[in-house]
Amino acid sequence: MLARGGALGAVGAFATVALAGCGGPDDADDAPAEPRRPDPETELLRSLVAGKAETVALYSAAIAAGETPGEELRPYLERHQAHLTELKRRLPPGVAAPTGAATPTTATPAPSASPHPSGSPSATPSGQAVSLSRLRQVERESAAARAEQLQSASPALAQLLASIGACEAAHAVALARLS
Protein backbone atom coordinates (compact mmCIF):
# COMPACT_ATOMS: atom_id res chain seq x y z
CA MET A 1 0.00 0.00 0.00
CA LEU A 2 2.75 2.35 0.83
CA ALA A 3 4.38 1.77 -2.53
CA ARG A 4 1.12 2.27 -4.31
CA GLY A 5 0.54 5.54 -2.54
CA GLY A 6 4.00 6.67 -3.55
CA ALA A 7 3.34 5.85 -7.14
CA LEU A 8 0.07 7.76 -7.12
CA GLY A 9 1.79 10.68 -5.54
CA ALA A 10 4.31 10.72 -8.31
CA VAL A 11 1.57 10.75 -10.90
CA GLY A 12 -0.02 13.71 -9.17
CA ALA A 13 3.22 15.61 -9.14
CA PHE A 14 3.73 14.94 -12.82
CA ALA A 15 0.22 16.19 -13.61
CA THR A 16 0.87 19.39 -11.73
CA VAL A 17 4.06 20.05 -13.62
CA ALA A 18 2.41 19.27 -16.93
CA LEU A 19 -0.48 21.61 -16.30
CA ALA A 20 1.79 24.39 -15.20
CA GLY A 21 3.20 24.50 -18.71
CA CYS A 22 -0.17 25.16 -20.35
CA GLY A 23 -1.24 28.65 -21.31
CA GLY A 24 -4.84 28.12 -20.34
CA PRO A 25 -7.83 25.91 -20.92
CA ASP A 26 -8.77 27.54 -24.23
CA ASP A 27 -5.53 27.32 -26.10
CA ALA A 28 -4.29 24.12 -24.59
CA ASP A 29 -5.52 22.01 -27.49
CA ASP A 30 -4.52 24.41 -30.24
CA ALA A 31 -1.07 25.34 -29.04
CA PRO A 32 1.61 23.91 -31.27
CA ALA A 33 3.47 21.11 -29.65
CA GLU A 34 6.80 22.19 -28.30
CA PRO A 35 9.63 20.58 -30.18
CA ARG A 36 10.80 17.62 -28.21
CA ARG A 37 14.35 17.71 -27.05
CA PRO A 38 16.34 15.37 -29.24
CA ASP A 39 17.21 12.11 -27.62
CA PRO A 40 20.96 12.21 -26.78
CA GLU A 41 21.46 8.70 -28.09
CA THR A 42 19.80 9.62 -31.37
CA GLU A 43 21.92 12.74 -31.67
CA LEU A 44 25.03 10.71 -31.00
CA LEU A 45 24.00 8.20 -33.63
CA ARG A 46 23.38 10.89 -36.20
CA SER A 47 26.81 12.29 -35.49
CA LEU A 48 28.39 8.86 -35.75
CA VAL A 49 26.62 8.14 -39.02
CA ALA A 50 27.82 11.44 -40.48
CA GLY A 51 31.40 10.78 -39.44
CA LYS A 52 31.41 7.22 -40.74
CA ALA A 53 29.87 8.36 -44.02
CA GLU A 54 32.79 10.75 -44.41
CA THR A 55 35.24 7.92 -43.91
CA VAL A 56 33.41 5.83 -46.50
CA ALA A 57 33.60 8.75 -48.92
CA LEU A 58 37.28 9.19 -48.20
CA TYR A 59 38.09 5.58 -49.00
CA SER A 60 35.92 5.75 -52.10
CA ALA A 61 37.89 8.76 -53.27
CA ALA A 62 41.19 7.04 -52.54
CA ILE A 63 40.15 3.98 -54.53
CA ALA A 64 38.85 6.14 -57.37
CA ALA A 65 42.12 8.08 -57.48
CA GLY A 66 43.93 4.81 -58.00
CA GLU A 67 47.13 5.76 -56.24
CA THR A 68 46.83 2.63 -54.15
CA PRO A 69 45.43 -0.45 -55.84
CA GLY A 70 41.72 -0.54 -55.16
CA GLU A 71 41.85 -4.24 -54.41
CA GLU A 72 43.96 -3.46 -51.38
CA LEU A 73 41.76 -0.70 -50.01
CA ARG A 74 38.40 -2.17 -50.91
CA PRO A 75 38.22 -4.48 -47.86
CA TYR A 76 38.77 -1.45 -45.67
CA LEU A 77 35.98 0.38 -47.43
CA GLU A 78 33.69 -2.60 -47.04
CA ARG A 79 34.32 -2.80 -43.31
CA HIS A 80 33.55 0.89 -42.94
CA GLN A 81 30.38 0.39 -44.94
CA ALA A 82 29.44 -2.42 -42.55
CA HIS A 83 29.96 -0.03 -39.65
CA LEU A 84 27.79 2.55 -41.35
CA THR A 85 25.05 -0.01 -41.87
CA GLU A 86 25.15 -1.03 -38.21
CA LEU A 87 25.01 2.56 -37.03
CA LYS A 88 22.13 3.46 -39.34
CA ARG A 89 20.23 0.40 -38.21
CA ARG A 90 20.20 1.78 -34.70
CA LEU A 91 18.55 5.05 -35.67
CA PRO A 92 14.97 5.08 -34.38
CA PRO A 93 12.24 4.69 -36.98
CA GLY A 94 11.42 7.99 -38.60
CA VAL A 95 14.79 9.55 -37.87
CA ALA A 96 16.58 10.29 -41.09
CA ALA A 97 20.25 9.55 -41.38
CA PRO A 98 22.42 12.53 -42.22
CA THR A 99 22.78 12.74 -45.97
CA GLY A 100 25.35 13.98 -48.39
CA ALA A 101 28.52 12.21 -47.46
CA ALA A 102 28.01 8.56 -48.15
CA THR A 103 27.92 8.59 -51.91
CA PRO A 104 30.51 6.01 -52.86
CA THR A 105 31.73 7.91 -55.90
CA THR A 106 32.52 11.25 -54.34
CA ALA A 107 34.85 12.59 -51.74
CA THR A 108 32.67 15.56 -50.97
CA PRO A 109 31.73 15.50 -47.32
CA ALA A 110 28.37 16.46 -45.94
CA PRO A 111 27.90 20.20 -45.60
CA SER A 112 26.96 19.81 -41.96
CA ALA A 113 29.58 17.22 -41.34
CA SER A 114 31.18 18.53 -38.25
CA PRO A 115 29.08 16.90 -35.56
CA HIS A 116 31.89 14.74 -34.33
CA PRO A 117 33.74 16.72 -31.77
CA SER A 118 36.04 13.94 -30.70
CA GLY A 119 38.35 13.48 -33.57
CA SER A 120 36.35 12.19 -36.48
CA PRO A 121 37.79 12.88 -39.90
CA SER A 122 37.59 16.37 -41.22
CA ALA A 123 36.45 17.35 -44.66
CA THR A 124 38.50 16.66 -47.71
CA PRO A 125 37.82 18.83 -50.73
CA SER A 126 36.50 16.98 -53.70
CA GLY A 127 39.20 15.86 -56.05
CA GLN A 128 42.02 16.15 -53.56
CA ALA A 129 44.20 13.11 -53.46
CA VAL A 130 43.80 10.95 -50.40
CA SER A 131 47.11 9.58 -49.23
CA LEU A 132 47.62 6.44 -47.21
CA SER A 133 48.99 8.55 -44.39
CA ARG A 134 45.78 10.55 -44.42
CA LEU A 135 43.76 7.36 -44.17
CA ARG A 136 45.92 6.17 -41.30
CA GLN A 137 45.41 9.46 -39.52
CA VAL A 138 41.65 9.18 -39.95
CA GLU A 139 41.69 5.64 -38.58
CA ARG A 140 43.77 6.60 -35.58
CA GLU A 141 41.63 9.64 -34.78
CA SER A 142 38.41 7.70 -35.24
CA ALA A 143 39.58 4.91 -32.95
CA ALA A 144 40.61 7.41 -30.31
CA ALA A 145 37.23 9.10 -30.58
CA ARG A 146 35.34 5.83 -30.01
CA ALA A 147 36.87 5.47 -26.55
CA GLU A 148 35.27 8.80 -25.64
CA GLN A 149 32.00 8.46 -27.54
CA LEU A 150 31.02 5.17 -25.93
CA GLN A 151 31.07 6.62 -22.44
CA SER A 152 27.65 8.24 -22.77
CA ALA A 153 26.08 5.65 -25.04
CA SER A 154 23.61 2.93 -24.19
CA PRO A 155 25.26 -0.40 -23.29
CA ALA A 156 24.57 -1.94 -26.68
CA LEU A 157 25.77 1.10 -28.62
CA ALA A 158 28.84 1.30 -26.39
CA GLN A 159 29.73 -2.22 -27.43
CA LEU A 160 29.27 -1.43 -31.09
CA LEU A 161 31.49 1.63 -30.76
CA ALA A 162 34.14 -0.32 -28.89
CA SER A 163 34.13 -2.92 -31.65
CA ILE A 164 34.24 -0.35 -34.45
CA GLY A 165 37.15 1.35 -32.69
CA ALA A 166 39.01 -1.95 -32.50
CA CYS A 167 38.56 -2.42 -36.23
CA GLU A 168 39.78 1.11 -36.91
CA ALA A 169 42.82 0.57 -34.71
CA ALA A 170 43.67 -2.58 -36.65
CA HIS A 171 43.18 -0.63 -39.87
CA ALA A 172 45.73 1.93 -38.74
CA VAL A 173 48.28 -0.81 -38.18
CA ALA A 174 47.46 -2.60 -41.41
CA LEU A 175 47.61 0.52 -43.57
CA ALA A 176 51.20 1.01 -42.49
CA ARG A 177 52.05 -2.22 -44.31
CA LEU A 178 50.60 -0.90 -47.55
CA SER A 179 52.74 2.19 -47.59
Partner: peptide
Protein backbone atom coordinates in the same frame (compact mmCIF):
# COMPACT_ATOMS: atom_id res chain seq x y z
CA UNK B 1 34.21 1.53 -20.68
CA UNK B 2 37.04 3.65 -22.00
CA UNK B 3 39.61 1.26 -20.58
CA UNK B 4 37.81 -1.65 -22.20
CA UNK B 5 37.63 0.09 -25.57
CA UNK B 6 41.34 0.87 -25.56
CA UNK B 7 42.20 -2.67 -24.50
CA UNK B 8 40.12 -3.96 -27.41
CA UNK B 9 41.97 -1.70 -29.80
CA UNK B 10 45.31 -2.96 -28.58
CA UNK B 11 44.17 -6.58 -28.79
CA UNK B 12 42.79 -6.17 -32.32
CA UNK B 13 46.01 -4.51 -33.47
Amino acid sequence: RRTAALAMQEAAA
